[in-house]
Amino acid sequence: MPYRIRMARAGDLDALLALMEKYYDYDRHDFDRKKARNAMRRLLENRRLGSVLLALDARSNNNGKPIGYLVLAFGYSLEFGGRDAFIDEFFIMEEYRGKGIGKAVLEHAQKVAKKQRVNALHLEVTKHNSAVIGFYRRAGFVDHDRYLMTRRT
């Protein structure tokens, strides 16, 4: 299947929001369009915060139909010796799964992270999603037997 992966741009905001809404529905998160728009816009405008990769079905039209995205959010970790990144969101539309696109997007993200001098990539996955857990394990991610805990400020 012909597809391409590229860095998302400000002009991709509406397409990214449409994908986010599908992802949030799939993963059972509340979706607040205004909040999502503001957060994604800030990320697209400031590359120091992170990077957004956009996967496109190259068969559909000249620019390609958006079929998935991955968000790398940059941070810093003493444990991992410096700059790290969190794969904050990663979604491929259901009809495009199982075709190697997700693997290619993840590999592209790893190259972006390396270029940005990121020492470690982290991600979060729901415990009930065994297929995705297996996908990440095959890609080299390991479980540190820790809990991800969050407190909103």
Rank of each mutant, 00 (worst) to 15 (best):
R138G: 04
D143H: 07
V71D: 01
Y69Q: 02
K22P: 04
A18W: 08
R37T: 10
R41M: 11
F74W: 11
D14C: 10
I5A: 00
Y147P: 03
Y76V: 12
I133T: 05
K115E: 07
N38E: 15
M93W: 01
Q116L: 10
G140P: 12
R59E: 13
D84E: 09
R4S: 14
R33N: 07
G140V: 11
E94V: 12
R28E: 13
R6A: 12
G98I: 13
M1T: 07
Y136D: 04
V105D: 00
D27H: 14
E94I: 10
R33P: 08
R117V: 06
Y76L: 14
N61K: 07
L13C: 06
M20N: 04
D32H: 15
N46V: 13
S77K: 04
D12Y: 08
N62W: 15
A15F: 05
E94K: 12
R6F: 07
L123Q: 05
F86S: 02
L49F: 13
L78P: 10
A18Y: 06
A131S: 15
R138P: 05
R48F: 10
R41K: 14
E89S: 07
M40N: 04
Y69T: 00
A113S: 05
A109R: 03
A104E: 06
Y24E: 09
Q110G: 06
A55I: 06
L43N: 01
D25G: 15
F90T: 00
I67G: 05
K34S: 12
L123F: 03
R146F: 07
G98D: 01
V71Q: 01
G98L: 10
D143Y: 12
A55N: 03
A131V: 14
R151D: 01
V125Q: 01
H29T: 06
F90E: 00
V125R: 01
N46F: 12
A15V: 00
L78Q: 08
A10L: 15
Q110F: 10
Y23Q: 14
N38W: 11
K34L: 12
S60K: 15
H128I: 08
R33Y: 05
L106Q: 01
I101L: 02
P2N: 10
E89L: 03
D145P: 02
L148D: 07
N46G: 08
A18L: 15
G81W: 07
I92G: 03
A113V: 07
D57K: 03
L53Y: 03
L106D: 05
S51Q: 08
H144K: 14
R4C: 09
R152Q: 09
G134V: 11
V112D: 00
R6V: 12
G64N: 05
G64Y: 03
